[in-house]
Amino acid sequence: MNLFLNPFVLYSLVALGAVGVSLALPRRGVNPQVLGGIIAGTAAGLVILMLGVRAVGDGAGLVNPFFYVFGIAAIASGLRMVTHPKPVYAALYFTLTILATAGLFLILASEFMAFALVIVYAGAILITYLFVIMLASQSGKESAEEGLAAYDTESREPVISTVACFVLLAALLTLTFRGVKEMGPGANIAQSAAVIDRLPGKAERALIDAGVIASGDKVEVFSGKSQVANVRKADGTVVEVSAASAGSKWPKSLEVENVEGLGFTLLKDHPGIIEIAGVVLLMAMLGAVVLSRKQVQFDEDQKVAQSRRLREETARL
């Protein structure tokens, strides 16, 4: 087995993490949450540290430094969310997790998803959560532990669950740390580059900005690979403009932006997803409305009275 980390060290750290998490879970009486958090955080931090060492050792260089900020923030706030006895705080920590995740999305060059995440999750879903928490818990008391319900302060079978889940984590990390070389990147670069050919308007704007062609000219065909554009002038003549003919004025690179690429892929390769997502959301909305509607209960006498009244009215009519 060829892992990025020594398996023995890895599994030891996983076990350490398990101990930490199981200590951090809320329980009655002696509650070493802080200690557990420290242990678990130490274990996670050591793994990340060792991964960084390995990355440097492999010559790939250190990962984007913002990863350490957002990654650790995500893990820490996630852990605190799970261990915090108060639902409101848990929801707020979850917001933090989402923000950290959005940061990770950003350094993974997925801006659209990052912003979508913040807007949809942190902006919409979490607010709903908070409303429900306010609605349901109804505990106006500020005092910490005493005002909480037993089901908030006491977790259920923390050790067994933690062990089971950390076995799963060990398995997942075993697979993850083997690397995914056989799936290697790069095969899709050409496809990505080809996207620009389908967006002549983008090339047109870049060429106009760079002053290669005049404002009002139309780029009819653009080849990202050979860096050649067929341009229809305002007077109707068609000329070929290329990197060679434009010289230094030619834009350095004409790349597809994330939103463009994502939108293009979404509509070209997965058009059904938008439809399905729409239907799912619609059904969820209907379901939520139906489920949360207040049911008006009639007892038998009321039903009889109602029907009698209806009969009488019908008879009168």
Binding site: S161, V167, L168, A171
Partner: peptide, 13 residues
Amino acid sequence: AVGMAGGLAVMAV
């Protein structure tokens, strides 16, 4: 849920 998670872990292992 514990059964499911435990089973999943065992299966993965």
